[in-house]
Simulated scan of single mutants.
Amino acid sequence: MANVFVEARPKGRPEGAAIEGYVVEDHANDVLGTFNTQEEAVAWAKGKGHSPVVARVRHLNDKKKPDHWRSA
């Protein structure tokens, strides 16, 4: 299956602000699932047959730039 993106929430949070959870999104920014931890999000995505990727640097997360992402 296609790559899905595991991202921290809330989006656009200030540096150092707490992460409230993680979402799994497709390339069109549709949320496929919401989770408490990144590990849960990755496990869910793999269980559904997706290839999850996470941002290399949290504030660099342009889905059109493959260098911003790494396999989970």
Rank of each mutant, 00 (worst) to 15 (best):
58 R>K: 06
45 A>T: 01
27 H>Q: 12
7 E>D: 02
3 N>F: 09
3 N>C: 01
51 S>E: 14
6 V>M: 06
44 W>R: 05
2 A>F: 09
4 V>H: 08
42 V>C: 13
24 V>I: 14
53 V>H: 02
22 Y>R: 01
19 I>S: 02
39 E>L: 09
13 R>G: 12
54 V>N: 02
23 V>E: 14
12 G>V: 06
8 A>C: 00
70 R>N: 00
53 V>S: 00
33 G>K: 03
26 D>G: 11
15 E>Y: 11
40 E>Q: 14
27 H>S: 11
41 A>N: 09
36 N>D: 15
16 G>W: 05
64 K>M: 08
63 K>G: 04
71 S>G: 10
38 Q>K: 15
14 P>K: 15
56 R>M: 04
46 K>F: 06
20 E>Y: 04
49 G>D: 04
20 E>S: 14
18 A>T: 11
48 K>C: 02
31 V>M: 01
1 M>C: 11
25 E>V: 04
65 K>W: 09
14 P>A: 15
72 A>H: 02
57 V>S: 04
41 A>W: 03
35 F>P: 00
33 G>F: 08
52 P>M: 05
36 N>W: 12
2 A>P: 15
45 A>H: 03
56 R>S: 07
62 D>H: 11
9 R>K: 12
19 I>A: 06
68 H>M: 02
45 A>Q: 08
27 H>Y: 14
70 R>E: 08
